[in-house]
């Protein structure tokens, strides 16, 4: 089955599956002659390896969703790509998202699938679940109707759903079941790359654990890479191999999960991690002063400097580059001094 489905995929490739270079995507709006530009994705460079779960963290309106929409090529005006490139490598075949939209269209769902924000609602409320599978996946799999049905049923069983749900309408299913179905839909074609935008945010903690285990399980079985977006650091701790922290449209720190939780390099990351509750610890959590910057008019220099406890004069004038440090990368003039603060 595997061989017939993916003839063009080499089993082992050292090439990273995704390369994002100097990506800039801005919301450009023109109201009554006044042009406003919101720099939601500003100069982001990152790579994602095969078989890796990459977590993207950041507060609301930091540009997380804009970043992954841009990576998926699922953007609509006013969001536009201003500079940079997004390249996928599907088994030796390189695909540039913005150079070759036609090939990209064919690759979607087959090689690259998407679990969207509010993905509990991906199922059309007036159609049976089986129609969603048919609409999304059948053209990518090239199977006869009965073989397709058998495959979908086998897939549903693997993710712990009774194949009878195919005959149900979405309103007859629970939230957790719908979330499982959303993940089932995204993985039925066994894509190499899965984009998950807050797939667990609307769920309670128990169902969330369940769904995270499911995602991890599917990822292990398929060997896919996942880019996983949530503001919930505990979810990242549970699932991500590497984490990228986004602040005001920029990647400020990136590194392996374990290292980041133990030794955050960027003061913002340090605050995020310090804000997590720990069992037995009753000290009051410190909140960051100020509020997230307006991306239409971001602060000069390092965008975090107005809220940063370690800020010096240089921070306000010069923007720090994202440089390798330790096991990851960090963009801070005073990186490494965090532990002392």
């Amino acid at each position: 089955m595997q061989a017939t489905l993916k003839p063009d995929v080499a089993t082992s490739s050292a090439e990273p599956v995704l390369r994002v270079e100097d990506l800039k995507a801005y919301y450009q709006m023109n109201y009554f002659g006044v042009t406003r530009e919101v720099r939601a994705v500003d100069d982001i460079t990152l790579t994602i390896q095969r078989n890796e779960i990459y977590g993207i963290a950041g507060e609301s309106s930091s540009g997380k969703s804009s970043l992954i929409k841009t990576i998926a090529g699922a953007i609509r005006p006013p969001l536009r790509v201003v500079a940079g490139s997004v390249r996928f490598d599907f088994g030796g075949r390189t695909l540039d998202v913005y150079d070759d939209p036609e090939a990209m269209r064919a690759a979607r769902w087959r090689h690259l699938s998407y679990v969207m924000q509010g993905s509990m609602n991906v199922l059309n409320p007036v159609r049976r679940v089986k129609h969603a599978f048919h609409d999304f996946a059948v053209r990518h799999m090239g199977l006869s109707p009965s073989a397709f049905r058998a495959r979908v049923e086998a897939h549903l069983e693997q993710i712990g759903l009774d194949p009878q749900v195919l005959e149900a309408y979405p309103h007859q299913l629970s939230g957790g079941m719908r979330q499982r179905l959303a993940i089932g839909l995204a993985t039925v074609c066994e894509p190499e790359f899965i984009i998950a935008d807050e797939p667990t945010t609307a769920l309670d903690v128990l169902v969330q654990q369940d769904v995270l285990a499911l995602i991890k399980d599917v990822q292990m079985r398929l060997g896919s890479s996942i880019i996983f977006v949530t503001h919930d650091m505990t979810v990242h701790a549970a699932i991500a191999d590497r984490i990228g922290i986004i602040y005001a449209g920029r990647l400020v720190e990136e590194g392996p999960t374990q290292a980041m939780f133990e030794r955050p390099q960027h003061p913002y990351t340090a605050h995020l991690i310090a804000s997590l509750p720990r069992i037995g610890d009753t000290t009051r959590r410190q909140s960051l002063p100020g509020k997230p910057p307006n991306l239409a008019d971001p602060p000069s220099g390092c965008r975090f400097h107005p809220r940063c406890p370690l800020a010096v004069a240089k921070c306000a004038s010069e923007s720090p580059p994202l440089l390798p440090r330790g096991e990851g990368r960090v963009a801070c003039w005073r990186a490494g001094e965090v532990a002392a603060a």
């Binding site: 979607r108 969207m116 059309n124 129609h131 609409d135």
Partner: peptide, 26 residues
């Protein structure tokens, strides 16, 4: 602007397919 439409578009359904299969029943 519903999720199921955005998903259908992402999955590669054409405009007539989205309209007839996803929206017409609604």
């Amino acid at each position: 602007n519903r999720e199921f439409t955005r998903h259908a578009v992402f999955a590669g359904m054409s405009v007539p397919q989205v309209l007839v299969r996803q929206h017409l029943p609604y």
